[in-house]
């Protein structure tokens, strides 16, 4: 059975919103990084669904690029988490706040 592309798109949208919500709500930096990862993959799913809808290979090609981006992003994100932990003894993203508004 072939899943219709529109399902894939809906799933991508749902994943993206979940990721975005996680990004806004979670203060733990580890979960923030995971949320970013979820959003990135939602974007990838969107590309694949669109490629399948139009019968083009570019959707899947872009996903290969996205894998590389995700790997780098994870490396940088984890480095930031480490830095935050070392500097503030915490993984709370609000603890790095310096502006008081």
């Amino acid at each position: 059975m072939i899943v219709p592309p529109v399902y894939g798109m809906v799933l991508a949208a749902i994943l993206f919103v979940i990721g975005l919500a996680g990004l806004m709500i979670r203060r733990n930096m580890v979960f923030v990084v995971i949320s970013v990862e979820v959003m990135l993959n939602a974007g990838g799913l969107g590309f694949i669904s669109a490629g399948s809808r139009w019968g083009q290979a570019e959707g899947q090609a872009v996903f290969l690029f996205l894998l590389a981006v995700a790997a780098t992003e994870a490396a940088i994100g984890l480095a930031l988490v480490l830095w935050l932990h070392r500097r503030h003894k915490s993984v709370d993203s609000d603890s790095a706040r310096q502006m008081r508004g």
């Binding site: 975005l20 990004l23 806004m24 709500i25 203060r27 993203s93 790095a96 706040r97 502006m99 008081r100």
Partner: peptide, 17 residues
């Protein structure tokens, strides 16, 4: 406008969203 410069990334993200 001062209150928008909170230094809290989550609020910035909310603004972007």
């Amino acid at each position: 406008l001062r209150y928008t410069q909170s230094g809290l990334i989550r609020w910035y993200l909310l603004g972007i969203g």
